[in-house]
Amino acid sequence: MSETFAKPVPHPTPDTQPFWDGLARGQYLLQRCKECGKLRHYPRPVCDGCWSMAHEWVPAGGRGTVHSWTVCHHPFHMGFKAQSPYILLTVDLAEGVRAQGQLRGLPAEALRLGLEVAIGFEQEGEGPVLPVFHPVPA
């Protein structure tokens, strides 16, 4: 990662690297337990349902609904100062786990619980590919 990229970057571990590799390919990957089939997110080594460590990575469909949000005005990290204020969404993915990402293309005033959104992918400079959310056309 270039030293000129001013935002915080992830430091993946062997447990989480496939998630970031998926984002780089335009896929939002979830872990599915190979033993009992339970989905889990964020990535971690063990299934909390059956304690199996065997898992596979499956792409999320990319649709979800708004669970909550915040509009970030004060940049607690200088890397986000230029784009402030920005909206962070907490989204219920259709698969039953949640995702977080910045919202694009909609003002905060239009937000409500349950609003349908679609996942997208963005890369800024030499930074990592990150998930974002877009409104779903009616």
Binding site: K7, P8, V9, P10, H11, P12, T16, Y42, C72, P75, F76, H77, F80, Q83, Y86, L88, Q100, G101, Q102, G127, P128, L130, P131
Partner: peptide, 11 residues
Amino acid sequence: GEFELPLGNVA
């Protein structure tokens, strides 16, 4: 730190 800080969820 890994999954949300890069999105802007800092403090």
